[in-house]
Amino acid sequence: MSEYITPIRTYLAVFLALMALTTITVAVAFLELGPFNDIAAMGIAITKACLVVLYFMHVRHSSRLTKMVVVAGFLWLFILIAFIMSDYLTRGMISLQGPIG
């Protein structure tokens, strides 16, 4: 199997992008955006994670099987969070007050 060799240029570009995104994260923290502060912080963090996984961890030029393994990992994280939220978000939907409470 021929292995794709990432040029140093790409690594440097990704590194600079990560640094830039870090700076933006810090800058955004000083702005008053209400709920959008969290969204911006999470959005930037996810973008950075994707860059690391795709380039530094070589997933972009890996086989489809490797990509599937990566996706499975995130899918399982999603299952974990989604099902836990199915508990937390519906807890308030039942009231014990009333005839039985």
Partner: peptide
């Protein structure tokens, strides 16, 4: 097997709706 864990939490304060799904 990964989608059923909440059945250990039926009598904790887990939401009854989540309980139903699990």
């Amino acid at each position: 097997g990964f989608l059923v864990w909440g059945h250990h939490l039926f009598v904790s304060s887990q939401s009854i709706y989540a309980g139903l799904i699990f």
